[in-house]
Design a protein around this nucleic acid. Structure first.
Lengths: 208, 208
DNA sequence: TGATAAACGGACCGCGCGGTCAACTTGTAG
DNA sequence: CTACAAGTTGACCGCGCGGTCCGTTTATCA
């Protein structure tokens, strides 16, 4: 389904690849408002070429983001086999925050054509994270009133928080991840004041 | 300094007030990218009038945001006298998150003309928050490796996290505030992996 | 009330954006 | 080698934005 009927021509495949790389870099540096023209220039192609490969800017963003989600889901899957379930969850959050440092949270944005693929990938990620969380709970490393959705939402926080401080150490996010992870631990005790939101079945959307 | 040499004409004062109200509402609903034209329409004035009162869109945003900061600083000051220092800090975070629900984090943005006022206000807020934190630490409610800057940064997180879930309960942010506050508590134990960032003396800036 | 400066309003400007298109180039199958 | 489909390109379009400007209205005060 992903592979089209006919294989791409050689130059087209090359352009598509460098386009994706350029888009990833540009979105990382400038955020989701990076301009298509800049991305095209960075990739060394004309603007028209961008729209030949991705009908819409959102589709391009979605493609970049799909990679990230798949990467995270794969990582979560591998960590599912770790012996220390608490450490596995922390390691996952660590990797997630570290990558979001570069790409912000934009992968939650909904997007036209690739929407189904994105939704599927998000679904897979959700499943893996939920498994990770449940194992961590069984191991006594995470409080029992936490859900996979909570973790998905909170894993975005450290990099966002850090994005406000101008010349932050590139590792500063670890400080806030540690605080939040402590908050997920069983030592906090007091019951949470609100029920968790519905799982990702309902679409997540992009914040302002 | 704030009051100009000559007092405002009656209609001008009225317009300025409704402009501020409209701007607050519009920024709350649409975020910092709300258009000046919409704000003007909402206030029932012409677009030119907006720019007469605020030379730049950023100045308008800064004015709105200055109110918020002053309000928060005042609240923090009052809470400084509370008997239960831990509860006081939590109450402050509660109020801050609740208001940010409406205005996002935009008050950290730097801005041209009002920059000094904003910086001053932010300084006052920082002082009050730091006092709150230190009292909470002395009371044993907050771990000792936390700074006022940490709290300033983290107080933005709950509303941001929640902004991703589409039809969130309006109180959902309390859930994540509770988790984060638990992370600030002394029960977590493990030392933080990174030193805190410099205090607000260095300018904070607006995230993408 | 009438003179005057202050305030108002909306047409207007330039800019950069996402997206389109038709002329042109190039990889490739036979 | 050739013919043709696939791919590329950048000028171009419409739009909405922040900001300007000047003819008009209006609060104020002698």
């Amino acid at each position: 389904m992903t592979a089209s009927i006919r294989p791409l021509r050689a130059d087209a495949a090359r352009n598509r690849a460098s386009l994706l790389a350029a888009a990833e870099a540009e979105f990382a540096e400038r955020g989701p408002d990076a301009s298509v023209a800049d991305i095209a220039r960075r990739a060394g192609v004309g603007k028209g070429t961008v729209f030949r490969h991705f009908p819409t800017k959102d589709d391009l963003l979605a493609a970049v983001v799909l990679d990230r989600i798949d990467g995270l889901a794969e990582l979560a899957r591998r960590l599912g086999g770790a012996s220390d379930a608490g450490a596995a969850l922390l390691e996952f959050l660590d990797a997630a925050a570290s990558r979001q440092q570069q790409l912000d949270l934009s992968f939650l944005r909904e997007s036209g054509a690739l929407n189904e693929q994105l939704a599927e990938a998000r679904g897979r990620l959700f499943v893996e994270i939920t498994a990770l969380v449940e194992r961590a709970q069984a191991a006594g490393a995470v409080r029992h009133d936490i859900t996979g959705t909570d973790v998905i939402l909170l894993m975005c926080a450290p990099s966002h928080v850090v994005s406000f401080v101008p010349q932050a150490s590139p590792e500063l996010w670890r400080r806030y991840l540690a605080i939040i992870f402590d908050g997920l631990g069983p030592n906090g005790a007091r019951p949470l004041p609100q029920p968790p939101p519905d799982p990702v079945s309902g679409e997540l959307h992009h914040p302002r």
